[in-house]
Write a protein that binds this DNA or RNA. Structure first.
Lengths: 200, 200
DNA sequence: TATTTTATTGAACATCGTCCATTTTCTGGC
DNA sequence: GCCAGAAAATGGACGATGTTCAATAAAATA
């Protein structure tokens, strides 16, 4: 079968993650199978476990890849316009775009849960914080000087706000309740909080 | 084993749902097992499938039970104070309380997904809308007369907002980002939108 | 009581994550 | 070029899952 010299350990790891990520995008977390990933790369199931140690580690690696792609998309989208006034809108749209464009991989980030007492590995946490930092910068720009102190806490809350809208848009809750413009609704909530519409 | 005369079909259905719900609360969606439910009620696995037809229907019934309990909790909590001014705060707190008090059953509502093209049964959708209606009434009370027209759309958006905060609180995202007071954050966003803090 | 209807069973099947003894492949020293 | 030790890869075995359905048992009916 596959020869050792074909791939270094790091290369093999990368191949498994890439193939696994594709498989995740196609079938979703509920139907994801480590065996299927092994089949697709032409290795046996045992090799997957030799490289990742456990199913959970494999999923974590795949979800980490998804986070990296998400951050890329967010940055690319924000970089498009030199410095338009609608950067927060663009950030929110990018959030929804990625979720819609990678339904299954995006959902897997939240469908998968580590055992109760276990924390995600440091690298994974850093990826989440990297996205957080990107959004903080945008919130800072939108916030008046006398409110810069709120920026961190407010960004956490606004991320949760946008996430909630995105979840309801993706899982059908909004459809059930008759909501047709989730992105605009989320943007409205963000503007309420940032006060950029300037009604005071 | 169990005799037909012991339970009517409807009783058996109820027993399965109750036992299944308990099992779901204990182990969560990922480790839920229809076989285990059968074992606990002293019937064979086949009987579960005779009554519910499929695994998905069983999960749907259990999640429906969770929704009913959630609505009960919300109503009870709102009824506690005759008519305090902090009813929205109470509603939000009730949302979080239920999620925290029924971690696994609550998460199962969102962990489970029907096949892409399938819509939830009418009864299930009604349960979701029932919770929606309860919150609408509270939002109407908090909203000035000239904004009553927004009530429905705003409630959908605020539900998503609170849900997002609740998800991040329950799945560890807030912990990763250093957020320590998710309920207060959610309340702040709701007040931003409803304008009840009256800064204008 | 005899017959029909209904309820219940559990073996069989395909698949899954997990483990690990075994085999294969690679590598460095002679 | 060859051989021993290290590293990589294998795949059968295990217990568990959802799912199906012919066989069985019980109840209802005649």
């Amino acid at each position: 079968m596959a020869r050792r010299s074909d791939h270094s350990r790091a290369e093999l790891r990368e191949i498994i993650i890439a193939t696994g990520h594709r498989h995740m995008e196609e079938v979703g977390f509920a139907h994801f199978s480590a065996r299927e990933v092994a089949k697709r790369i032409g290795y046996s199931i045992g090799t997957i476990y030799n490289v990742f140690g456990s199913y959970d580690s494999l999923i974590l690696a795949i979800n980490g890849r998804t986070l990296a792609l998400w951050r890329d998309h967010l940055e690319r989208r924000l970089a498009e316009s030199a410095d338009g006034a609608d950067r927060l809108r663009r950030a929110i749209a990018a959030y929804f775009e990625f979720a819609a464009g990678h339904r299954h991989a995006w959902a897997a980030i939240y469908d998968f849960r580590l055992p109760e007492d276990t924390a995600p590995p440091e690298g994974y946490q850093q990826q989440v914080r990297a996205i957080f930092e990107i959004v903080i910068a945008e919130v800072r720009v939108a916030l008046p000087e006398d409110r810069q102190g709120e920026a961190e806490a407010l960004t956490r809350s606004l991320l949760a706000t946008v996430h909630g809208h995105c979840v309801f848009a993706m899982n059908g809750t909004f459809a059930m309740l008759g909501e047709g413009a989730p992105v605009e609704a989320a943007l409205q909530r963000v503007q309420d909080a940032v006060g950029s519409s300037g009604t005071c």
